[in-house]
């Protein structure tokens, strides 16, 4: 079960947020921004305090009720997927989300880099991907 997807730009701003499960509590749009910014900070701290040099920072956060998987691209964009704790094979899904992003967001002339994502085809692709997963 996939709960939600967050895409955070390299400056820590939330550029995309979408819930896929019904039972999730809705937050105000400001709260989502704060959440994204907080995670961005936590990610920066974890990569600094790691005992191993050049750590990529937090990758998985497992809790009793959810699991959060973070992948960072080479350009510093972070994809966060929140799933149920038992969910397997999230890496494959992350890759497919990144695939959709690089096709329908980056190749869209009406998208400005680092700005909120508004692309109908990206939305439709995600809906299809999550319903199949």
């Amino acid at each position: 079960m996939i709960y939600s997807l967050y895409i955070i730009n390299k400056a820590g701003g939330l550029v995309y947020q979408r819930d896929f499960a019904e039972q999730l509590e809705k937050l105000s749009s400001n709260d989502y921004l704060v959440l994204a910014g907080t995670f961005h900070g936590v990610h920066a701290i974890t990569s600094k305090i790691s005992p191993v040099p050049s750590s990529s920072g937090i990758e998985v956060l497992e809790a009793e009720t959810f699991k959060l998987i973070c992948t960072q691209t080479l350009t510093g964009t972070k994809f966060l997927l929140v799933t149920d704790p038992q969910h397997q094979n999230v890496e494959v899904l992350q890759k497919k989300v990144y695939d959709l992003y690089s096709n329908f967001v980056m190749k869209n002339p009406f998208h400005t880099p680092e700005m909120p994502i508004r692309s109908d085809q990206f939305d439709a692709g995600l809906t299809k991907l999550i319903s199949e997963a």
């Binding site: 329908f104 009406f110 692309s119 109908d120």
Partner: peptide, 14 residues
């Protein structure tokens, strides 16, 4: 194929 035209430009076809 990869272009999504925003709503304010809905008349546009690339």
């Amino acid at each position: 194929k990869y272009i999504s035209v925003p709503r304010e430009l809905s008349q546009l076809n690339c």
